[in-house]
Design a protein around this nucleic acid. Structure first.
Length: 107
DNA sequence: GCCATGGCTAGTA
DNA sequence: GCCATGGCTAGTA
């Protein structure tokens, strides 16, 4: 695991219940302002092994961005279960639910 | 080294 | 257009 990957993992692990972060926001906090797509990759590769709350990551517009319908539905359920309002279009109000970590992953 | 990958995104038209 | 990875390949040693 590279240092960048480790920082991304820690940031995602630090998202509390009932809050979300965006791909780009995580990339910025991990020191790679335009690395949003790397966050996608890491989510795929590391979610299981590192017990990442993958469902707390949405795109810059607050939308659930999983390709297949079943996955989108599952993410919406997981979020609602912890108190995040997801509208019919699969959108979350970032003004209400976005998590801003106190710390930038140390680098 | 090269190249595909990927659930993106800032900022035009 | 961006860019960090992993896998594969040509082509040296």
């Amino acid at each position: 695991m590279t240092p960048f990957t480790a920082r991304v993992v820690r940031l995602i692990q630090g998202i509390p219940e009932g809050r979300v972060m965006t791909y780009g926001q995580i990339a910025r906090r991990a020191g790679s302002p335009r690395g949003a797509r790397q966050v996608v990759r890491i989510l795929h590769a590391m979610s299981e092994r590192h017990r990442l709350p993958w469902h707390r990551v949405v795109n810059a517009r607050g939308e659930i961005a999983i390709p297949d319908a079943a996955g989108r539905e599952m993410q919406a359920q997981l979020l609602r279960r912890e108190g995040v309002a997801v509208d019919a279009g699969g959108r979350v109000d970032l003004a209400r639910f976005m998590h801003e970590p106190e710390w930038d992953a140390g680098w």
